[in-house]
Design a protein around this nucleic acid. Sequence first.
DNA 1: CGGCATCCTAATAGATACTG
DNA 2: CAGTATCTATTAGGATGCCG
Lengths: 117, 117
Amino acid sequence: MPLKVRKNRAPEPYPECPLAVCMSLISGAWTPHVIWYLSAGPRRFGELRHDMPAVSAKVLTARLRDLEKRGVLSRSVHPTSPPSVEYALTPLGRELMPAIQAIVEISRRLADQRSAD
Amino acid sequence: MPLKVRKNRAPEPYPECPLAVCMSLISGAWTPHVIWYLSAGPRRFGELRHDMPAVSAKVLTARLRDLEKRGVLSRSVHPTSPPSVEYALTPLGRELMPAIQAIVEISRRLADQRSAD
DNA sequence: CGGCATCCTAATAGATACTG
DNA sequence: CAGTATCTATTAGGATGCCG
């Protein structure tokens, strides 16, 4: 059993791999969407769920916790009633925007091309 | 049982989801790396394995087949001895480069910042 | 050289029900 | 409102061995 690397993720510990650092922050099917919807400004849990109706609460929670741990976003609890929790991009999170932006633009262009057929 | 969507992938069929089209082409831990290493020009299977020592042959094959099926790259077999197979980006594949490029640049900047600490 | 077949683990994600 | 708990399913990826 040789070496046992972390599975299902880009192998971060290889510096010769030029995409690894950023990929480890945006990998996951929902991660880029979360970052995208936060790029316009802070947003609450329920609003994010509304933005992405197809994601389950569990998965959204998991992604948010993960991104918080990695320093991409911040989580602030407002002890009101009913309680509200706000998520916002950190400076690190904002550094990822060029990639997300590029993905959005390519998606739009490809979608346009398809509908033009 | 309501609607049964495709699992473990960004939900392509939601047009209101602005990242879906591109994400469906670059999702997967190794996919962006493959596209990146092909961006400099056509490349053979063995060369790609050399570029990404951490990927197994099986996974690399799977990613290449997948990308070929989606029209991102082309596969051409040269019936020499020993056989050689060359992969190259298609025009569609080249459209994805801005996103890959952005990921590479962010990775480099973040790596620089870390080493500057 | 460039695969494919087989078996395996781990990560991601979905459904549903429940809670402070 | 913003989660947590539990259970299950799908998939990505890894290890190994064989083949034209």
